[in-house]
Design a protein around this nucleic acid. Structure first.
Length: 486
RNA sequence: GGUCCCAUCGUCUAGCGGUUAGGACACCGGCCUCUCACGCCGGUAACGCGGGUUCGAUUCCCGCUGGGAUCGCCA
């Protein structure tokens, strides 16, 4: 497709504040955002809060906060404004009403006074007669006019859907699409409360906000022909569409809580890096040859709709973890300053305000060992926790009377050794082990447990240097005491 | 059931008529090693089925099967 730069390229993400920000939604937001950024276009955030029963201000705030955390900044929308506002659908009701009145006047839509009960009754009757039959609104009010309108009765507005013919549109991912009009019914545009339904609000907003390409999940694909009909009835130009395959759970059902974390907030708490999450999500339903790891800049430079896949996929927490790990351990993806800045909040929350210099010093030891910032935090408890916690398994295995014999000699060596520095300590201990024909592991494993409480840790001598002479000496002695007392 | 969509290792995918069907995650070996990781080396594992089209189909077409979306005054 032709790549045109500039103002005419406008994309949007339009979440409903009926819940937290779901990672499936983030994937949609990301693809829109990437395309806008790649073409130097505009990314609009619009809040579709017309479901009054489920939309809350709190949810809106959560969505904005999580979008910001992810780095998916918007050029127009809540809190940043823009020339096409307001960006909350509930604040655009006059606009919807105006266009709907226009449709009714031109005979392309009509008032329907049928009540929900009447419709339900008709549905039930049809189902009783033929369980397999497809219920369609029977068009009771389709051909009535103002003379037939009852006074003071609530009504909805329905679109007059053509009785034959096809609705077609071009999908950037799925190709040319064709839907038979007779499979659709005269659907409702606006509720009896005057609040627009999804399809109407979506079309009017996308049009008035100048959206050039609508990209959304495949679950909306069935709405698109309906929306095309509204565009046509209103005389609007139809934008481009791109639908994205669904992100499903392990067993092919909709991705939900039972598959683990689904909200952005949970991934933040679990210590994921935004770029890592975004990298995984980008590679879900999109590919660029064999490349798996992308910085955000890589994505902006390489993302395109042609690389999008059409088949639904299953969310894989393992792969997400692996991609996140890649981002955390590779310096070109996360430089030290960034790592420190992003990691520090987790550490401070776990252990209280810790010394930045010490944190910076353990960092290089932890990076190749931790897949998330949270895991990294758990791996430095021996350094920052107020009390050393022993793993039972490791304690029982290595802090025993027979295995603790080298602990005190090691303590003595460490106490006297200069300089107190990892490489130098290592040389000294290795020399001792060799001289007395002791396997290094026989010294190191009990010592590791004494110093860190665990059977696995960064290199023993790095641990010592970080702990400092005083703590190292004290813990070696305490470990020996623990091993021999019982 | 109607309408629509999809189909390559367990998972994410490369492939766009001729390949020993490639990569990544996961898994299993091995090396490295003070432990755990990292890193390195190697391995197991896929074209759903049946018809066409073609000299030749994973690739194009049709059918089947299987999976999914949707059928609201939700979005």
């Amino acid at each position: 497709m032709a790549i045109t730069m500039g103002d005419s390229v406008r994309l949007r993400f339009a979440p409903s504040p009926t819940g937290y920000l779901h990672i499936g939604g983030v994937r949609t937001a990301l693809f829109n955002w990437l395309w806008a950024r790649r073409l130097g276009g505009t990314f609009v955030l619009r809040i579709e809060d017309t479901d009054e029963a489920r939309s809350t201000e709190e949810n809106t705030q959560v969505i904005l906060r999580d979008m910001r955390w992810l780095g998916l900044n918007w050029d127009e929308g809540p809190e940043v404004g823009g020339d096409h506002g307001p960006y909350f659908q509930t604040q655009r009701r006059d606009l919807y009403q105006k266009y709907v009145d226009q449709l009714v006047e031109s005979g392309k839509a009509y008032r329907c006074y049928a009540t929900k009960d009447e419709l339900q009754k008709a549905r039930d009757e049809l189902k009783a007669k033929d369980p397999k039959a497809q219920f369609k609104y029977p068009g009771w009010w389709r051909d009535k006019g103002p003379a037939d309108w009852p006074k003071d009765q609530p009504y909805v507005i329905r679109l007059k859907v053509p009785e034959s013919g096809d609705v077609t549109y071009e999908d950037l991912v799925f190709g040319q699409q064709r839907f038979p009009a007779d499979a659709m019914q005269d659907f409702v545009l606006i509720r009896s409360t005057g609040m627009p339904l999804y399809n109407l609000g979506c079309v009017i907003d996308d049009h008035t906000m100048g959206i050039s390409l609508v990209a959304r999940g495949r679950d909306h694909m069935i709405n698109t022909p309906l929306q095309v009909l509204i565009y046509q009835a209103l005389g609007f130009d139809v934008p481009q569409f791109a639908h994205l395959p669904m992100m499903l759970g392990k067993k092919n059902e909709k991705l939900s809580k039972r598959h683990g974390a689904v909200s952005v907030a949970e991934y933040r708490k679990a210590g994921f890096k935004p770029d890592g999450l975004l990298n995984y999500l980008a590679r879900f339903g999109w590919s660029h040859g064999d490349q798996e790891v992308f910085s955000l800049d890589d994505l902006i430079q390489t993302f395109d709709w042609a690389g999008c896949n059409r088949s639904d996929g299953r969310f894989d927490p393992n792969k997400l973890l692996a991609i996140n790990f890649e981002h955390l351990k590779e310096d070109h993806l996360t430089d030290e300053a960034t790592y420190l800045k992003q990691w520090a909040p987790y550490v401070n929350e776990a252990y209280g305000e810790v010394d930045e210099a010490r944190l910076a010093k353990v960092m290089p030891l932890i990076r190749p060992r931790a897949k998330t910032y949270l895991e990294a935090t758990e791996r430095v408890d021996w350094l920052f926790a107020t009390e050393l916690v022993f793993e039972d398994k490791s304690k029982n295995k290595f802090l025993t009377a027979d295995k603790a014999e080298h602990l005190l000699p090691l303590r003595d060596l460490v106490q006297a050794h200069e300089p107190f520095e990892a490489t130098s300590l290592e040389e000294a201990v290795k020399a001792w082990a060799e001289r007395d024909d002791i396997k290094l592991g026989a010294i190191a494993q009990p010592a590791r447990v004494a110093l860190t409480g665990k059977g696995a840790s960064p290199g023993l001598f790095d641990v010592m240097e970080l702990l400092g002479r005083e703590t190292t000496v004290a813990r070696l002695a305490a470990g020996h005491a623990l091993a021999t007392e019982g």
